[in-house]
Computed example of a mutant assay.
Amino acid sequence: MDTTDIRRAQLGDLNALLALEQACFSNDRLSKRSFRHFIQASQSTLLVAEHSGVILAYGLVWHHKGTRLARLYSLAVSPEARGAGLASRLLARLEQNAAERGRLYMRLEVAKNNTRAIALYQARDYRIFGEYSDYYDDHTDALRMQKQIRTLSQEGAQHSTPWYQQTTEFSCGPASLMMAMASFAKGVECSQTMELDIWREATTIFMTSGHGGCHPLGLALAARRREFEVQAWINNDQPLFLDGVRSDHKKSIMAVVHNHFVTQCAAEGVAVNYAEVSQDTVEDWLQNGFAVVVLISTYRLDGKKAPHWVVVTGVDDQCFYLHDPDLDTKTQLAIDCQHVPIAREDFARMTAFGSNRLRTAVAIRPATH
């Protein structure tokens, strides 16, 4: 197999890829339409290993937009070509390609009973960090594995945080705040009931479209009322989120809500700092035992300029790590939204929202009495 060529898949490979899929898998097979999509999609890398004009293997990786995370979507080697190290060669090339595209981690799922594949991944330094029950069509469990494909400093601040998926399109703020609160094991159980309760307490009423999102001071008050010490930082002391709203009526309502939150914070002892939220600020919070919820713009994730709340789970010399409560069930698994690595330069751009470059965050920890 020394003369095997590894190259990008082309549309002319579709029939060979489909035949290889049929030969390698009995369940969860990719369709011809799926292969066509992955060959053409800019966010995917589909490589094939070819020997004497015959495709013996393929590997497929998806590069998540706006993050430094890649996911090994599928890896297949024809039965007659196994045992010659082809899977390891192909995987190494996929890792190299992902690293060259700025990705920091490769993640994958593998059937718990697929000992041969697990051994391959472990030999290439993938580590198990979780599992899914009843994951595949045949009800087999899956292990979740991850490898750091670019060298990072192991020093940094971390905050152990459970992950929760928001249940509405407008409740990322409550979902993120619940994750932050639950990280302290204070008996906080993330639930839709609490998610909606917090949204009602913290909503801006209106937003650019649809239901209103959540105001940082509203989230801060919700945490304070649940017996947390709270710091809210905003680099703007004017009513927030108005620049994307056209209706004067909506703007006036949002301004009333903003001013009322300011009054409530003063009355309830919530510290509000009208100052720039720097990366050092966030890192200091983590090092001092705070959980941090931060507002980002989703532009670098989905091409839309929407405000979105996430929770910071860690930081090192190159990246911030986020739990994103918004799971796109069509293209993502829960793993794709957990401890998502964001390079520092990307984080700096992502945390400035709107034409006014709003930066805001809420830091919490259990109150001491």
Rank of each mutant, 00 (worst) to 15 (best):
Y299K: 06
V293F: 02
Y299W: 06
L301A: 02
V293W: 04
A291N: 12
Q318A: 12
H323R: 06
C319V: 12
T298D: 09
H323K: 11
V311M: 05
T313I: 03
V315S: 09
D317G: 05
R300G: 10
T298R: 07
G303R: 07
G303Q: 11
D316N: 13
R300N: 11
D324L: 01
Q318E: 13
F320H: 04
V292G: 06
D324H: 01
S297Q: 05
Y321R: 11
P325L: 08
V310S: 02
W309I: 10
A291Y: 13
S297C: 08
P325F: 05
K305C: 13
G314W: 07
V294L: 15
S297M: 05
Y321Q: 09
V310G: 03
R300D: 12
G303T: 08
F320C: 04
V293L: 06
S297N: 08
Q318T: 10
T313H: 02
I296V: 08
P307I: 07
V315Q: 09
V311Q: 02
L322H: 03
V294P: 10
D317F: 02
K305N: 15
Q318I: 07
I296F: 01
D316K: 01
H308F: 02
V294D: 14
L322C: 04
V310W: 04
D316F: 00
Y321N: 12
G314Q: 06
V292H: 10
A291D: 14
K304A: 10
V292L: 14
I296H: 01
D302V: 09
S297I: 00
V312Y: 07
R300I: 12
I296P: 00
R300Y: 14
A306L: 15
A291F: 11
P325W: 04
W309G: 09
D326G: 13
H323I: 05
D316G: 04
G314L: 07
D316V: 01
W309K: 10
R300P: 10
V293I: 10
V312P: 11
D326Q: 15
V292D: 10
Y321E: 11
W309T: 13
L322S: 03
V294M: 13
D326E: 15
G303M: 08
H323T: 13
A306N: 13
D302Y: 06
D324V: 03
F320S: 03
L295W: 05
K304F: 08
L295M: 14
C319K: 07
T298H: 05
Q318G: 06
V292T: 13
R300L: 14
D326N: 15
V293D: 05
I296W: 04
R300S: 14
L322A: 04
P307H: 09
Y299I: 08
H323Y: 11
R300W: 13
G314I: 04
D316H: 02
V293H: 02
Q318R: 11
W309H: 11
D326S: 13
K304C: 09
V292Y: 07
L295E: 09
H308A: 03
A306P: 15
D317K: 05
Y299P: 03
K304T: 14
H308Y: 02
G303K: 08
C319L: 14
V312C: 10
I296K: 02
K305R: 12
D316L: 00
P307Q: 06
I296E: 04
L322N: 02
A306K: 13
D324I: 03
L295F: 06
G314N: 05
P307R: 06
F320K: 00
D316I: 03
L295S: 11
C319F: 13
V315H: 05
Q318S: 14
A306F: 15
A291W: 12
K305D: 15
P307E: 11
D324W: 01
S297T: 09
